[in-house]
């Protein structure tokens, strides 16, 4: 205690008291859980709910009575009068979200792509080499709501047949539901399959399958 060098600016050079460290650690943990783990995110949720209510609640689409889906979640489609979304590794179930995680050199991936390519070519009546890659590959999240404009274009003739519409009308609708690059220069253009199919339903109901 007679050490004259001791002053507020010299560090605690003696052995660190375990009690002090433990008390401060427990205190820090309480602060972290309450302030960083609860107060911060709840402020974020509150501000989001007030400023961007629609987006904060999942960008849901409804018809006034019930919720039909979300613009950010792809739904599967099988009917002739509907545009098809991208294949999914998890059957379009967001609760199971994920990709195939197949490597480029995995033979199973190649077989799957080739059979999907053949199926799309047969269904849409286009040559194999005109089938766009995004329509035969599984997305990363497993519920990609978009397809590329090319993938929409090759489906127009079939969808028009399935609804008794002219291809020109369907093409026009596709154009209306195509999101270009954001602000003109970000990302890649895509067509939202769910909102496009909803718009088709509103225009002309699909023919019942024979």
């Amino acid at each position: 205690m007679v050490n004259v060098i001791s002053s507020p600016s010299t560090p605690d050079t003696g052995p660190v008291s375990d009690q002090d460290v433990l008390r401060a650690s427990l205190g820090l943990a309480v602060v972290a859980v309450v302030l960083f783990g609860l107060v911060y995110p709840l402020i974020g949720v509150g501000v989001g709910q007030v400023l961007f209510n629609d987006q904060a609640n999942g960008s849901l689409i409804g018809d006034g009575e019930r919720i039909l889906g979300s613009t950010l979640v792809a739904q599967p489609f099988a009917g002739e009068g509907y545009f098809r979304p991208r294949p999914s590794a998890v059957d379009h179930q967001p609760m199971a979200a994920g990709g195939s995680n197949a490597a480029r050199t995995n033979p199973a991936l190649r077989e799957r792509i080739e059979s999907a390519r053949q199926a799309v070519a047969d269904r849409e009546g286009v040559p194999l080499d005109q089938v766009p890659g995004d329509l035969v590959t599984q997305s990363g999240g497993g519920f990609d709501p978009h397809i590329s404009p090319d993938s929409a274009a090759i489906q127009v003739a079939r969808v028009a047949r399935g609804r008794g519409l002219t291809p020109a009308v369907v093409s026009e609708l596709v154009r209306a539901h195509t999101q270009g690059r954001q602000f003109g220069w970000l990302g890649a253009p895509g067509v939202n399959v769910l909102t496009l199919n909803l718009a088709l339903d509103a225009l002309a109901p699909p023919r019942t399958p024979e």
Binding site: V45, V47, L51, F52, R66, F77
Partner: peptide, 19 residues
């Protein structure tokens, strides 16, 4: 959030597919 990342404490809805 403005771009569509959810910010809510509610559970998510269950929907029936359109097709």
């Amino acid at each position: 959030t403005s771009q569509g990342v959810p910010a809510t404490l509610a559970g998510g809805p269950v929907v029936r597919p359109l097709d």
